[in-house]
Design a protein around this nucleic acid. Structure first.
Length: 112
DNA sequence: TCTGTGACCGCTG
DNA sequence: ACAGCGGCCACAG
C-alpha cells in the first residue's frame, strides 16, 4: 500500500538514519544533528522529527536542545509527552533532573 | 529566568 | 516553478 513511507522525503530519511546512529544510552542535540546532515537549521530537524511517521520506532527521543534542556517530543514542548520522553531516556540510562535538564553531559553523542 | 525576535530551511499549496 | 507558512531551535535583551 502507498502508505506513510511514501510521504517521507529524502531529508527525513537522512534524519532518521542519523538517529539510528545514536548509541543506546546516548543523546545528541538538534544542532549537532543538523551539522551532521549539512543542514544549517536545527529547526528543520525538529520539523522532520515532528512529522516522523515511524515513531516510536525511530528514536526521536534521543535528541535534545543545545542548552541540554529536554526539548520537545511528539510535537509538544511540555506535558505528558515530555514526561514520557524523560522516562524513556531515563530507562536508557540518560537521566534528567526536575528542570528537564540533562544531568550527565557525558551522555551526549557527537558524530565523527 | 523568561519573553521576544531572528534566521534558516524544508514542506505544502 | 513560485510563494507563503510553520517548526521538538538559537540567541540576545
Amino acid at each position: 500500500m502507498a502508505g506513510d513511507a511514501d510521504r517521507v522525503t529524502d531529508f527525513q530519511r537522512r534524519v532518521y538514519a542519523a538517529l539510528e546512529r545514536i548509541p543506546l544510552g546516548k543523546v545528541t542535540t538538534y544542532r549537532e544533528l543538523a551539522r551532521e546532515l549539512g543542514c544549517g537549521s536545527a529547526q528543520a530537524i525538529g520539523q522532520a522529527l515532528k512529522r516522523n511517521p515511524y515513531a516510536p520506532d525511530v528514536p526521536c527521543h534521543r535528541v535534545i536542545r543545545t542548552d541540554l534542556s529536554i526539548g520537545g517530543y511528539s510535537g509538544q514542548t511540555e506535558g505528558a509527552k515530555i514526561e514520557k520522553k524523560i522516562r524513556l531516556l531515563g530507562e536508557e540510562g540518560v537521566p534528567f533532573d526536575d528542570s528537564g535538564r540533562l544531568v550527565d553531559p557525558s551522555c551526549l553523542f557527537f558524530y565523527a
